[in-house]
């Protein structure tokens, strides 16, 4: 009976007991997974805005208990958060701009089949992608070049991602030849073709790739932790790590500066929350382009 009704409706909602089971299990499992992702964040955010006593006693779960914003305000103003945030923004903005320029400039010649020396360049990229000089030799070079304690050390390691380069190159390769040719016939030089024809036609891919770069600059912890020792240049990731590492001294300093006693649990929760907020704010925007990027990536193969 059920089978007959199915043949009459080639698409639509699930029918039959088994189909309904599949759907039900899917809803349940995905809801559980969503909660597993969401609840830890909710817990930390609740701790950040809950009464200190409740936090210390462990009486905060997934909702604020005794709502207050004082802890957040103290951590925001007294622990160097703003400066670290500023540094991260500066590095990310300059870095993404530089990365995009370098990536676009390199991807275009690589996408031209007639380019002489294309094979050699491609091989160089492959080597750079899969073989790393290693931590210690890279550190030596940075030290020799005087990059230590400068923002350059935070930008150079991410300036060119070969993976992103290949995405852009593939998208340039996919453009119809005719458009480029007609621009050339009109007398446009290589730079003109690239910036006034090729780039405008590849906007979605370029947006996605700049997101990928932004995430890699923003989230980088390691480079900032070994190349930067000056407090004034610390990024938000190092800031958060430092707060969690010497939570007691940070809490003491805060107490002597403001007279506010915040539990170490509460402090960590505040610092984490403040670090997550910028991400949540740009998330809707980033997510759209990243999902797009995945589709591009899967077409790439």
């Amino acid at each position: 009976m059920e089978k007959k009704s199915q043949t009459r409706r080639p698409s639509g909602p699930p029918r039959g007991r088994q189909d309904k089971m599949v759907t039900a299990v899917s809803y349940v499992v995905m809801t559980v997974l969503g909660l597993v992702c969401l609840l830890p964040c909710l817990h930390v955010a609740s701790k950040a805005v809950s009464n200190n006593v409740a936090v210390t006693l462990g009486k905060v779960y997934f909702w604020p208990n005794g709502f207050q914003l004082d802890s957040l305000r103290y951590v925001l103003t007294e622990t160097g958060y703003v400066n670290a945030l500023k540094n991260s923004i500066v590095v990310t903005v300059i870095g993404v701009a530089g990365s995009m320029l370098i990536t676009i400039l390199f991807a275009y010649p690589l996408s031209e089949p007639q380019l002489r020396g294309r094979g050699v360049l491609t091989i160089l990229c492959m080597i750079a992608m899969v073989f790393s000089g290693g931590l210690v030799p890279t550190y030596m070079v940075f030290r020799t070049m005087g990059f230590l304690n400068t923002r350059v050390a935070l930008i150079v390691p991410h300036l060119l991602s070969i993976f992103n380069l290949l995405i852009v190159r593939n998208s340039f390769e996919g453009l119809p030849d005719g458009v480029k040719e007609s621009a050339r016939i009109d007398g446009a030089g290589d730079f003109q073709v690239l910036f006034s024809v090729v780039c405008p036609m590849s906007k979605p891919v370029l947006a996605t790739v700049s997101m990928l770069y932004a995430v890699s600059y923003w989230n980088n912890y390691f480079d900032a932790s070994i190349y930067i020792t000056k407090d004034s240049l610390k990024t938000i990731q190092v800031y958060l790590k430092n707060v969690t590492a010497d939570i007691n001294s940070v809490a003491d300093a805060l107490k002597s500066a403001t007279g506010a006693a915040i539990s170490s649990d509460g402090m960590i929760a505040c610092a984490v929350t403040l670090t997550v907020i910028p991400i949540i704010m740009v998330y809707p925007f980033v997510q759209r382009y990243m999902v797009q990027g995945i589709t591009i990536g899967s077409e790439k193969g």
Binding site: P40, Y221, L240, I268
Partner: peptide, 12 residues
């Protein structure tokens, strides 16, 4: 989330 954030959350 960076690994530092994930660490902070799970430390908490």
């Amino acid at each position: 989330f960076s690994w530092v954030i994930v660490y902070g959350i799970f430390l908490s």
